[in-house]
């Protein structure tokens, strides 16, 4: 149990559109959240405990495509497995630890290793499956998923008329 779980306004991760749109209350709230997180992180990572590799996702959306980015430092293309199902995209892989050999003396071990699996839910038949592309560069995986034309048509700007 973490204190941040008890804070009701933190029930979902904040989606941000840009720094400019934040008002000072949002800013304060975010800083407070950060303080809790940092404080608790300090408690959690005492001693020799290693962190679990759990890569983070960002998902952005434009009018005609959805783009997901994942930070995967230390992996190569071969370590990453992508599966596209009807209603989701699953990313899995393993960040392999360098084999500890005799004569290797660790001073610091902060980097996380291990197997991970993340699924991004997608609207059923919302993306053009044949045109999904993935690119791995500088330790960042970028998956571009063009929306199907029907899906694009769904989000339509509705003009507001004065009566």
């Amino acid at each position: 149990m973490r204190v941040s779980d008890l804070v009701p306004w933190r029930s979902s991760l904040p989606a941000r559109r840009g720094e400019g749109e934040e008002n000072s209350f949002d800013l304060m709230r975010r800083e407070m959240n950060q303080m809790f997180t940092d404080f608790l992180r300090g408690l959690e990572t005492t001693g020799e405990e290693r962190s679990v590799f759990n890569p983070r996702l960002n998902v952005t959306e434009t009018e005609n495509e959805i783009e997901a980015t994942v930070e995967l430092p230390g992996l190569s293309e071969e370590d990453i497995d992508l599966t596209l199902t009807r209603d989701g995209l699953t990313i899995q892989g393993e960040k392999k630890e360098e084999k500890e050999e005799e004569g290797m003396n660790y001073y610091r071990r902060e980097r996380a290793y291990g197997y991970f699996k993340r699924t991004i839910p997608l609207p059923p038949d919302g993306v053009d499956r044949d045109k999904v592309e993935a690119n791995f560069e500088k330790g960042v995986l970028t998956i571009t998923m063009p929306k199907r034309e029907e899906a694009q048509a769904v989000s339509r700007r509705i003009p507001v008329k004065s009566g």
Binding site: L13, A15, R16, N58, V59, T60, E61, I66, E67
Partner: peptide, 8 residues
Amino acid sequence: YGLAYSEY
């Protein structure tokens, strides 16, 4: 673009 979901 619009940020749909953000973890990092």
